[in-house]
Computed example of a mutant assay.
Amino acid sequence: MLRNVAAVIWDGVAPFEFGVVCEAFGLDRREDGVPLLEFGVCSQEPGLVRSNLGFAIEAPCGLERADQADLLCVPAMRRGDPVPPWVVETLLRAYHRGARILTVCGGAFALGAAGLLDGRECTTHWNYTDELSARFPEAKVVPEVLYVDTGQIITSAGTAAGLDACLHIWRQEYGAAVASAVARRMVVPPQRDGGQAQFISRPVPEVDAETLGPLLAWILENLHDELDVDSLARRVLMSPRTFARRFRAETGVTPYAWITAQRVRRAEELLERTERSIEWIASEVGFGNAAALRHHFTRVRGLSPQAYRRRFACGDAATA
């Protein structure tokens, strides 16, 4: 279970990407039901570290703090600068003792310098993926995703994708309810499309669509109903073809994909918070029967509903 997080920074650190990991893991959100994590900011020595914008950021901790972390976070830095040897050594120590390592945007270049991307799928900002591939030809760079989780190492794309990766880690460690609470405080979606690994839904979640917003809100309140394109189109006074085209334009996916994603997310909440049977949950979220729920849930999450409940359920629901 994730308890201890550290960010390692050095001269040239990007303050926004650094702020992403501070926002995700460094704030006390216990009033929202989010566990409090130990969080530290580290550098080679305690003191001021110059950002890539010229102002300084204080790192109160030295490397002994980084060596205690369950999760070591590496924000973006100036890609043209060599990665300091002490950073490489810190990353290798973390990796060999089994800590997880998260990079945001150009932070992946530090992992490459440490040899930790060799033979591994990874990503970075789309503008730098070619450069990452050229500098580290043994890395398997995936340019089209928000982040890549290979187990011990998580690499994320541009700045906002760092938030997606952080929420992914919260979900893995503490479940959908905690990840959603963190997302609400940051005013971002709990999950976005991006070809992510397990535990992250491929269809996009609810969005503030321009014209279909009220319909999307209604769908979320009526997931148990039969929600086909024809009936939804009638509800907004559109032809099915126009409705399907407008829906995809405003959400990025088909009505079927969006609704399925919401049903899986609602099933997650019920699995975590209730002791209801899988059959009951399947009916409540609109999948109709347990077999359909298992099919969609396992495809999206990589776990069966029963396995997800055992991992993330609160209280007695874990044994239901």
Results as ranks from 00 to 15, higher is better:
Arg3Met: 07
Arg3Phe: 06
Val5Ile: 12
Val5Phe: 11
Gly12Pro: 10
Ala14Gln: 11
Pro15Tyr: 07
Pro15Gln: 13
Glu17Ile: 02
Glu17Thr: 15
Val20Ser: 09
Glu23Trp: 02
Phe25Thr: 05
Asp28Phe: 03
Asp32Arg: 13
Pro35Asn: 07
Pro35Gly: 05
Phe39Asn: 04
Gln44Cys: 12
Pro46Met: 12
Arg50Ala: 14
Phe55Lys: 10
Ala56Thr: 15
Cys61Gly: 06
Ala66Leu: 03
Asp67Gln: 15
Asp67Leu: 13
Ala69Asp: 10
Ala69Phe: 11
Val74Asp: 04
Ala76Cys: 03
Met77Arg: 13
Arg78Leu: 15
Arg78Gly: 09
Arg79Ser: 04
Arg79Pro: 05
Gly80Tyr: 06
Asp81Thr: 05
Pro82Leu: 02
Pro82Arg: 01
Val88Pro: 07
Leu91Ile: 08
His96Met: 08
Ile101Thr: 06
Leu102Phe: 07
Thr103Cys: 05
Val104Cys: 02
Gly106Phe: 01
Gly107Leu: 09
Phe109Gln: 10
Ala110Ser: 15
Ala110Met: 14
Ala114Gln: 12
Leu116Ala: 11
Cys122Tyr: 03
Thr124Tyr: 10
His125Thr: 11
Tyr128Ala: 14
Thr129His: 15
Ser133Gly: 09
Pro137Val: 05
Glu138Ala: 12
Val145Phe: 03
Tyr147Met: 11
Gly151Cys: 04
Gln152Asp: 11
Ile154Met: 08
Ala161Ile: 07
Gly162Lys: 01
Trp170Asn: 06
Gln172Tyr: 04
Tyr174Ile: 02
Ser180Gln: 13
Ala181Tyr: 05
Ala181Arg: 12
Ala183Phe: 04
Arg184Pro: 00
Val187Asn: 04
Val187Thr: 12
Pro189Tyr: 00
Gln191Ser: 14
Ala197Asp: 15
Phe199Thr: 13
Ser201Glu: 06
Ser201Gln: 04
Pro205Asp: 09
Val207Leu: 12
Asp208Thr: 06
Glu210Ile: 14
Glu210Asp: 13
Pro214Ile: 06
Ile219Met: 13
His224Thr: 03
Glu226Val: 14
Glu226Cys: 05
Asp228Gly: 11
Val229His: 00
Ser231Pro: 00
Arg234Phe: 00
Ser239Pro: 04
Arg241Leu: 08
Arg241Gly: 00
Phe243Asp: 02
Arg248Lys: 15
Thr254Ser: 15
Pro255Lys: 00
Ala257Pro: 01
Ala257His: 05
Ile259Gly: 02
Ile259Asn: 03
Ile259Thr: 11
Ala261Tyr: 01
Ala261Cys: 08
Ala261Phe: 00
Val264Ala: 06
Arg265Tyr: 09
Ala267His: 01
Glu268Gln: 15
Leu271Ala: 08
Thr274Trp: 04
Trp280Pro: 00
Ala282Pro: 06
Gly286Val: 01
Ala291Val: 07
Ala291His: 02
Ala292Glu: 08
Phe297His: 02
Thr298Glu: 13
Pro305Arg: 06
Tyr308Val: 11
Arg309Asp: 02
Arg309Glu: 05
Arg310Tyr: 07
Arg310Ser: 14
Arg311Tyr: 01
Asp316Phe: 09
Asp316Leu: 12
Thr319Pro: 00
